[in-house]
Amino acid sequence: MNVMDRTFEPDLTVDLGSVRLSNPVMTASGTCGYAFELGDFVDLNRLGGFITKSITLEERAGNIPPRTVETTGGLLNSIGLANVGLERFIQEKVPLLEKMTIPVFVNVAGKTIEEYEEVCRRLSEIAVIRGLELNVSCPNVKEGGISFGINASATGRLVGAVRKACPETLLIVKLTPNVTDITAPARAAVEAGADVLSLVNTFTGMAIDIETGKAVLGNGTGGLSGPAIKPLALYQVQRAYQEVASPEGIPIIGVGGIVCAEDAIEFIIAGAAAAAVGTAGMINPSCLVKIVEGIRQYLKRQEIKTIKELVGTLE
């Protein structure tokens, strides 16, 4: 390998379809609020991109507490998509997002395909929003309450409908890991028009209070996040990259238990173009920028000129 100049600065830029990020580190939906909630603790404008919490058509109060419980190396949550709803989001939160200098993506959830279509159509008209991330893990109320995302054809129908409703918008589809074969919904999403895949959402789990014999969470079950899920998420990213994203030329946002630069780099080697940090950023907001710096140092040390060279290099 050539001896590099001491002043060598690696290129950290990442392209998610038509949107360029200055570095691969993003916030993961649901762990960073609507806009600047973490702003007293970390300079969010130093990240590559910002993904909001899930927005639904109607305001949602959220589930009955307790809503979270810590498990070994993980956080189990059943927040219930508590959010202010589309109208208040546009009125109260979008003006805050307009102050953000990095690309902003809004995560969208819904009970029916029509809800997703309406929310996405409205949001796609707002200039500061550079793309939409579809949370396909929600129950499909019109078809028996089964999550859209665990069924490839339901995923395809949902993504196809939103694609049609907003043909110009960058569409990220966030896949649920609660499936036997991640490549099936991944392929369905790409075939229906997804520009970017994001994976994984939380793994369904539960915790039981042995003194009362009841589930700890008010909702019974919840989604597991945090470092406990990192190896599982990494495997699914690697599978989706090899089987779908790489052949189709679709970038992946890797998510799941990232707490440090080394974790993020593992996801990039597995095939992720960008890495979203969730639970760790909520506990230690400053780790978000430390991860950016750590990736930069790694590339320097390894004498890799651009982060893009590292994507999917798993041997």
Partner: peptide
């Protein structure tokens, strides 16, 4: 969980 208004726990 977070203590800073993000997680809604």
């Amino acid at each position: 969980a977070c203590g800073i208004g993000v997680c809604q726990s």
